[in-house]
């Protein structure tokens, strides 16, 4: 059994090794893109059942963003929705035999966390400007600047570790059980892994919302205090 912490190179393009998570991610991108095109090819004001279901999902996501971040959801839905759908499909891709979920590798989780990290900065600056955003680190007092800076990185790191640990452990456990027991024994664990994958996708997305929402609201508040 291979270590779950190692990444297998499928092929290389020049000096760039194309690992198995990257290939699976490309497959997921293709799948999600085709599904998106298929689901949105004939949108109309009088929705079909399929369109109604799609609108229900998107509307639920938008409402979640609105309720969590207390802002209009339109600018954030694409990023947060994509993160959720990607993590969910990535986690559930373990059901396909021979496919290892990209989120079971720390590079994918780190990539997602890095995107969230820069999204927090981007939306924070967009909401109140650079100065207002930087001032949020001095809240409630300037003494909190080191802690807030450290928190910015640690919470990103926690995102990485939480997702990586949960998904990797599931895959690891299933691999161990599969190597020790028969073919059908890991099935309950796989079902549990489905639930864990959905929960982790939801948690990662909600935490991203909280981080971005916090930055936006604090930056706006700081900006308004500046204007006063």
């Amino acid at each position: 059994m291979e270590s779950p912490l190692s990444t297998k190179t499928v092929f290389s393009i020049g000096p760039v090794p194309i690992t198995q998570p990257v290939v699976v991610t490309w497959g997921l991108i293709a799948f999600l893109a085709l599904a998106a095109v298929f689901l949105t090819r004939r949108l109309s004001l009088v929705p079909s059942r399929r369109q109604a279901a799609v609108e229900l999902v998107v509307d639920a996501l938008a409402n979640l963003v609105r309720d969590t971040m207390r802002v209009e959801p339109a600018p954030y839905v694409a990023l947060l929705g994509t993160i959720f759908l990607f993590i969910l499909t990535a986690n559930w891709s373990s059901l396909v035999p021979g496919i290892e979920p990209p989120t079971a590798h720390i590079e994918t989780d780190a990539a997602l966390a890095i995107i969230v990290f820069f999204a927090v900065i981007y939306f924070g600056i967009r909401a109140g400007g650079v100065v207002a955003y930087l001032k949020t680190f001095a809240q409630p007092t300037i003494l909190m600047v080191p802690l807030n800076v450290v928190e910015t990185f640690t919470r990103t790191f926690s995102l990485i570790v939480r997702l990586f640990g949960n998904v990797m452990s599931g895959v690891f456990v299933i691999g161990i059980v599969l190597s020790l027991a028969g073919l059908l024994v890991p099935i309950p664990l796989m079902a549990l892994d489905l639930l864990t994958g959905a929960v982790q996708a939801y948690i990662f997305t909600v935490l991203a919302m909280v981080f971005i929402g916090g930055a936006v609201s604090e930056a706006r508040g700081s900006h308004q205090n500046e204007r006063k």
Binding site: T19, L32, A36, E55, L79, H105
Partner: peptide
């Protein structure tokens, strides 16, 4: 892999935003 996955996710964000979330929210 980290760099490629970052780019992949950003591309996916653009694709889904362009072909999924934006049209549905627009309608």
């Amino acid at each position: 892999t980290l760099a490629l996955q970052t780019v992949n996710v950003l591309i996916l964000v653009w694709i889904l935003g362009r072909f999924f979330f934006r049209p549905v929210m627009a309608i």
